[in-house]
Amino acid sequence: KLLSSIEQACDICRLKKLKCSKEKPKCAKCLKNNWECRYSPKTKRSPLTRAHLTEVESRLERLE
């Protein structure tokens, strides 16, 4: 599967780190437990900047 097509777990399953069936409108866990089942939009991760990478590398060197 391509990364862009990976389905996201519902908010509660993601928060509780449960295996989500990803069914809509309610996944199996939410249906069974009568929880409100919501699927928040995916958040875009910002790409690493060179400055951040350099900072992490220098912190790693100090720890070694």
Rank of each mutant, 00 (worst) to 15 (best):
L31I: 12
C37E: 02
R45N: 00
K42F: 14
R14T: 07
D11H: 06
K16I: 03
C13N: 01
A9H: 06
L53S: 01
E57G: 00
L2S: 13
T49G: 00
N33M: 08
S4Y: 12
S5T: 08
C27S: 08
A9V: 10
K44F: 08
K26F: 15
L18I: 11
C30R: 04
E64D: 09
C13L: 05
K19A: 05
I12H: 12
R45M: 03
K19L: 06
H52A: 00
L2D: 15
K17R: 07
E23P: 08
S58D: 12
K22A: 02
L15I: 10
K24L: 14
T54Y: 08
S46A: 03
S4E: 13
W35G: 13
N34C: 14
E61M: 13
R59C: 04
K17L: 05
L53M: 14
Q8M: 09
L63I: 14
K17H: 09
L60P: 04
N34G: 12
K19I: 04
L31F: 15
E23D: 13
K16C: 04
P25R: 02
P25Y: 02
T54H: 04
E57V: 07
K17Q: 05
E7M: 09
P47A: 06
K1M: 15
L63V: 03
I12C: 11
L53I: 06
S5D: 15
E61S: 11
S58F: 14
K22V: 09
P25C: 00
S5K: 08
L31D: 15
S4T: 10
P41V: 06
E57C: 06
L63K: 02
K22C: 01
P47W: 07
R59S: 06
A9S: 03
R14K: 09
L53W: 07
K1L: 14
A9D: 01
P41T: 04
E7F: 13
R50E: 05
E57D: 08
L18Y: 09
R14Y: 07
S5Q: 09
E7G: 08
H52S: 06
C20E: 08
S4P: 11
C27M: 02
A51L: 10
L60C: 12
W35I: 14
E7P: 08
I12F: 14
K24E: 15
R62Y: 04
S21K: 01
K19R: 13
I12V: 11
A51G: 04
L48G: 07
K29H: 01
L18N: 08
R45W: 01
L48A: 00
K19P: 08
C37P: 03
I6C: 12
Y39Q: 07
V56L: 10
K42Y: 15
T43L: 13
S5N: 09
C10P: 00
C37N: 01
I12R: 11
R59W: 01
K19Q: 06
K24Q: 14
L2V: 14
K17M: 00
A28C: 10
K24R: 13
K32S: 10
R59P: 02
P47N: 00
L63P: 03
K19G: 15
C10F: 00
E64Y: 13
V56Y: 08
L60H: 05
R38D: 10
E61L: 14
C13P: 01
T54K: 03
R50N: 01
V56D: 08
P25H: 01
W35Y: 15
W35F: 14
R59V: 01
D11R: 05
E23I: 09
Y39G: 04
A9R: 04
S58I: 14
L3C: 14
P47I: 00
C30F: 06
I6N: 10
L60N: 04
L2P: 14
V56N: 01
L48T: 06
K42H: 10
L48P: 05
L63R: 08
L3Q: 08
K1S: 15
K16H: 04
K26S: 13
E36H: 13
K17P: 00
P41G: 05
P41N: 05
Q8Y: 11
Y39V: 09
K22T: 00
W35C: 07
A51R: 10
Y39C: 02
D11K: 03
E36I: 09
S4C: 11
P41I: 03
K24G: 13
R38L: 15
I12Y: 14
K22Q: 09
N34F: 15
D11Y: 08
L63E: 04
L53K: 02
E36C: 14
P47C: 05
L60Q: 03
R38E: 15
E55T: 12
R50P: 00
S5V: 09
H52M: 00
